[in-house]
Write a protein that binds this DNA or RNA. Sequence first.
DNA 1: CAGGCCCTTTCCGTCAGGCGGAAAGGGTGC
DNA 2: GCACCCTTTCCGCCTGACGGAAAGGGCCTG
Lengths: 255, 255
Amino acid sequence: MSANRVSAAGKVLQVLAVFDREHPARTLSEIAQCTGLAVSTAHRVVAELAAWGALERAEDGSWHVGLRLWEVASGCPRTQILRDAALPFMQDLYEATHENIQLAVREGTELVFVERIAGHRSVELLTMVGTRFPVASTGMGRVLLAHAPREFQEEVLAAPLRAWTPYTVTDPRTLRAQLDLIRREQVFVSDRQLSESTVAVAAPVRTGRAGPVGAALGIVVAARGAERARGLREPLLRAVHGISEELGRRARTAL
Amino acid sequence: MSANRVSAAGKVLQVLAVFDREHPARTLSEIAQCTGLAVSTAHRVVAELAAWGALERAEDGSWHVGLRLWEVASGCPRTQILRDAALPFMQDLYEATHENIQLAVREGTELVFVERIAGHRSVELLTMVGTRFPVASTGMGRVLLAHAPREFQEEVLAAPLRAWTPYTVTDPRTLRAQLDLIRREQVFVSDRQLSESTVAVAAPVRTGRAGPVGAALGIVVAARGAERARGLREPLLRAVHGISEELGRRARTAL
DNA sequence: CAGGCCCTTTCCGTCAGGCGGAAAGGGTGC
DNA sequence: GCACCCTTTCCGCCTGACGGAAAGGGCCTG
């Protein structure tokens, strides 16, 4: 058989793509199965990746992403620069609130969480660093969507919106109104849209004082303590302004 | 010409390896140069990687690591599990001290920084998340070395030790004594070994209460405020014990 | 304890797809 | 306008990637 129209480089990427949040570890035959590669081929590719350090092997024989690949990828400028600029402000915000502080960027019609601070007293969340969500599903995503090019907004509004809770806004018209609201107000409160037990407060991070929106910062609190959200507005705004200026400063010196 | 003894998968990895902390962005010809690949080959490989999202292109035409690769690699269990277990304790420690809190693992004879908390009031450091250092050069590294298999210790002690400052211990005999000390005491104070302006306090993180040492936690303070180090002992110990137990709990439930 | 099942590893002959030299294309600075 | 450098495309040759097959090994079941 040879339903194989994938370049050698493509095979490497296929193998890497097999590892995600739900499957951090996989066996050789799983890898072969998922990629559609012959086991012998998968075996060779995996062995080469492992020799380099991109994959590592657990005692039980299963494979997982290796430290070496993590090192290379952790230099990703999109996350690295943002993270460096934002962390001190996120720390301040955490210290003031002791809630979950999250940082995310938009990638197409999805939201990718880039950094997160959580302590012992924070609410448990289902989001994790490195995971994706539809951009319309979260408060942070809607903030990014509101400041995204029109085409993206239309693309998202055109698609059916998933209801995660009874409160999730799924009517495109209502969502459109929310996006308008977000652009007027700086801060957006997202009430139990993704989970019944959480309320999020989110604001846009810019590059420089008035530059383009490149990320969103959010605080997630328990829904039962939702009245707290009001008091989070000011500290959140201070943080996003601080981060935006810091990003502007770094972008300028980089040129 | 064809001084080419590298498999197709190897070429992909060669290209990825070209990106490090000193060179987060590179042009096509740089990539070709560094890997020794023909430009046309490098071009094809880079294009394939970019199509998948492993590489992205800046406006100036240079290439850098893409968000997609970062996502996959951020699932690396070695860092992910450790990070998740340690972060809340690192937060507490940061809040109590407002100093740099660092988490690192050992990879062969080198130290890799896995996580770092730093706020506005913390000292500027030359270490970054995702960077490597010789294991003997830092306080955290020596803690990991002290708890590493004998063979590694001998390997490191046999090699010449680099002097980063006038205070750096380079005599194998003195270092050996330090390693003994580390095993007796739980906490190790590393005085201006890597930089003249910093003092580090480090302790080992275990898997479970008495499991193997898998990481090191460290606090870095300004050398001028070195007397603070004494007071950091107890909070640091509390943190490493908390993390160790949390790791033990997770490892057990994973089985 | 034998038998069967499934996953991993190795081997090897075939042939497609990767390879790189060369040349065209495009941008910039002197 | 010319020269230089970087990027992109093209194409014919040939090598090294491919996958079927079989051996090896661990584990459960009857």
